[in-house]
Design a binder for these strands. Structure first.
Length: 683
DNA sequence: TGGTCGCCAATTTTT
DNA sequence: TTGGCGACCA
């Protein structure tokens, strides 16, 4: 249906193509937009928001925008703000599923049985709690075979997110633990009970309780009236639980728009499944489907390669991206001798592109796994090339930051056993055993207020050695003092001072680490409540310490380093994909099932389609293994299985490494790096 | 002898 | 950074 362009408020419609405009101005019933990579998906979604506001009289705060990743949320809301900015009245409500769930639950905690000051566990907190329960239940005995804590959380989380029974999840994703089904079931039940007793939620609970809230007989309809229109981005990456939530939000009066691309399902490990987007028309029989195929991002040679890679998929829904404009240079395939050669080559190419006018911000280095850029980061630092890294190890995962957060959690809730357990072990001569005993002596379950802590501590104190006692007294004094302190900023600063000597003592580079805590202290100064501050940190953690330092200056130019997962939805003029050899990409960790390989392929496709003009794929020919690790039998291949002969023919090829057959014979380390066919890994 | 601490190996992707 | 294993201390 064509809607005439009436006034300047809808001038943005002129910049859209026919399909986009059809999507933006769709009126009746649910709308599914199948948007290939680079087809102006964000533009379409944001324009639809603006259109709803300008033409349909929906007020901005009645529009709910849901995205899968935090970066997508941020980007989308920013653009919405710009486009709606002129009106300036209200703001679109939006964010990740988890952050929206959190906000709604803060509004109605009691309706789902939550204490008003409920806490939120991030993934590592949740894993720690599972570990504690595992020990309590005698499942951690030496020699007994049982999943480690990260695996426990993964299994549990899959059950929740896929909404499927443990036995099924075990059979499909963790067959090696199938015989532990009973113990796992018991452990998970205890985990649920403990979370309830502690008044905390994990990230999965946020979604579960949102669904419960939506089904609540009083609050449900109330929530329903909050939003006139719901837009969901990256629908292909939703899991069953999120699909349920979206279905719960739908009503006759409310509009629903979902956008996605079945070729970009890359969150299978979070129980995402392309089935959901493919079944959308079945679930919503009155849905309208609009397909976007014009690619505005990349040049045709890049799309040719992407199409070729996608065509290799076992079960492809044929879709060929067409470039909007002519010309463009072919993707570059660069074979390097090893990782060091790759590092030098990437740096050179980044600088070359920069010289030719592509600023650093318009370039990105992409990789399968966060650590693939370790060496490159050192070299960039050495060459003084500024960069920001996304994905990989996160700021909050740094040990000393966790230590500090635990102390803050104690200020918020002195009965938090997990936080005590970690904090106590910062003290000299205190390990898990002493910490456990001190905890028992504290008898936290009967603790009513922080003020009692000082007295309580007298019973635990003798269990510690002298220097540890002094440190502990400082911490307790800080906590007791902070209990009467309403200003979060002041409180956090005081606790930072209390923990500072312990950090300095406990870590080799303690003084450097303390500086990270300063950043956190600064951010906390703006917080209104400690519990909300901590919960938001768990849901929306800064992805780098640079995030905490605030947005970089406008004139700052810096290179982006990112995992492919974190790069989804983003684009750059020049993309340098590194470590694209078999074993790394596809990651051999992912090759436990045929579906694993298919997801790697889609991930590769996502990586390729991030590039606008220049795409370079670096393939190190070999990796040097630790000389002693004879156990590492599979080694790495020296090329990418995704780059078939047909795909390679679409690229310009540069070979910086001698032919493997030539150099391997006179290289001492050659025996460690045989090319092995990895197909055996998934039968 | 129980418990801590140092050393070594290995580490996917995100909310 | 975490986990496993061995050395050293009370």
């Amino acid at each position: 249906m064509f809607v005439p362009i009436k006034d300047s408020a809808t001038a943005f419609l002129e910049d859209l193509n026919d399909e986009q405009r059809a999507a933006v101005t769709h009126c009746e019933g649910p709308l599914l937009v199948l948007a290939g990579a680079g087809t102006g998906k964000t533009t379409t979604l944001v324009s639809r928001m603006a259109w709803l506001v300008a033409e349909q009289g929906v007020s901005p705060e009645q529009v709910l925008l849901l995205t899968f990743t935090r970066r997508a949320a941020r980007q989308m809301l920013e653009r919405a703000r710009v486009l709606l900015g002129a009106g300036g009245s209200g703001q679109v409500v939006g964010g990740t599923f988890h952050s929206v769930a959190h906000r709604l639950l803060r509004l109605h905690p009691a309706s789902v049985g939550l204490p008003p000051e409920f806490g939120v566990l991030d993934a590592s907190d949740a894993a720690d709690l599972l570990e504690v329960l595992r020990e309590e239940r005698g499942l951690a005995e030496q020699g007994s075979r049982f999943p480690r804590k990260a695996t426990l959380l993964d299994i549990y989380s899959r059950c929740v997110n896929a909404q499927r029974p443990l036995s099924q999840i075990l059979a499909e994703a963790h067959p090696q633990w199938e015989d532990q089904g009973e113990a796992l079931g018991g452990l998970f039940a205890a985990y649920g009970a403990r979370k309830h007793a502690l008044g905390v939620l994990d990230l999965d609970d946020l979604l579960l309780l949102w669904r419960a809230l939506a089904r609540h007989e009083v609050v449900g309809p109330q929530l329903g009236r909050m939003f006139a229109h719901v837009l969901v981005d990256e629908y292909q990456d939703l899991n069953q639980l999120q699909v349920d939530i979206v279905a719960g939000l739908r009503s006759k009066e409310r509009g629903l728009t979902v956008v996605g691309d079945d070729a970009q399902v890359i969150y299978g490990f979070r129980s995402a499944s392309a089935e959901h987007i493919l079944n959308f028309r079945i679930e919503y029989p009155d849905a309208t489907v609009v397909t976007l195929e014009h690619n505005y991002r990349s040049s045709q040679p890049i799309l040719d390669l992407a199409n070729e890679v996608a065509a290799g998929a076992a079960r492809a829904y044929p879709k060929r991206l067409r470039a909007d404009r002519e010309g463009g240079s072919r993707p570059q395939l660069v074979f390097c001798l090893d990782q060091s050669a790759q590092t030098q080559e990437v740096c050179q190419r980044i600088l070359d592109a920069y010289e030719q006018g592509t600023e650093l911000k318009e370039q990105a280095v992409l990789m399968r796994a966060g650590h693939h850029s370790d060496q490159l980061e050192l070299e960039l630092t050495r060459r003084k090339i500024p960069f920001v890294k996304y994905g990989g190890i996160r700021y909050l995962d740094a040990a000393h930051v966790k230590d500090f957060l635990c102390l803050l959690r104690l200020a918020n809730n002195p009965g938090d056993q997990l936080a005590w357990f970690r904090t106590l072990q910062l003290l000299e001569g205190v390990g898990p055993v002493t910490a456990r005993r001190a905890l028992d002596a504290l008898d936290l379950d009967t603790l009513d207020s922080t003020a009692e802590l000082a007295d309580r501590w007298l019973t635990a104190e003798p269990l510690l050695k002298k220097p540890a006692q002094e440190g502990a007294v400082r911490l307790i004094a800080g906590l007791v003092w902070s209990a009467g302190q309403p200003a979060v900023g002041v409180l956090v600063e005081r606790l930072r001072d209390a923990i500072a000597p312990l950090i300095r003592n406990h870590y080799r580079d303690g003084t450097t680490r303390l500086r990270d805590l300063d950043q956190l202290t600064r951010v906390a100064a703006d917080a209104h409540s400690l519990s909300v501050f901590l919960a938001e940190l768990a849901i929306d953690p800064p992805s780098s310490s640079a995030d905490l330092a605030g947005p970089p200056e406008l004139d700052d130019d810096y290179l982006i380093l990112s995992t492919v997962h974190s790069a989804k939805g983003l684009e750059w003029d020049a993309v340098h994909l590194i470590a694209a050899s078999d074993g790394n990409f596809p990651s051999d960790k992912a090759l436990t099932s045929p579906e694993g390989l298919e997801e790697e392929r889609r991930l590769f496709y996502v990586a390729l389609t991030r590039a606008r003009h220049n795409l370079t794929i670096h393939i190190p020919r070999r990796y040097y293994h630790q000389p002693h690790s004879r156990t590492d039998s599979h080694g790495y291949g020296n090329q990418s299985r995704f780059l078939t002969d047909e795909a390679e023919a679409l690229c310009d090829r540069t070979d910086l490494a001698p032919d493997p057959h030539v150099w391997s014979s006179d290289n001492v380390l050659a025996a460690d790096t045989v090319t092995v066919d990895l197909t055996h890994l998934w039968h």
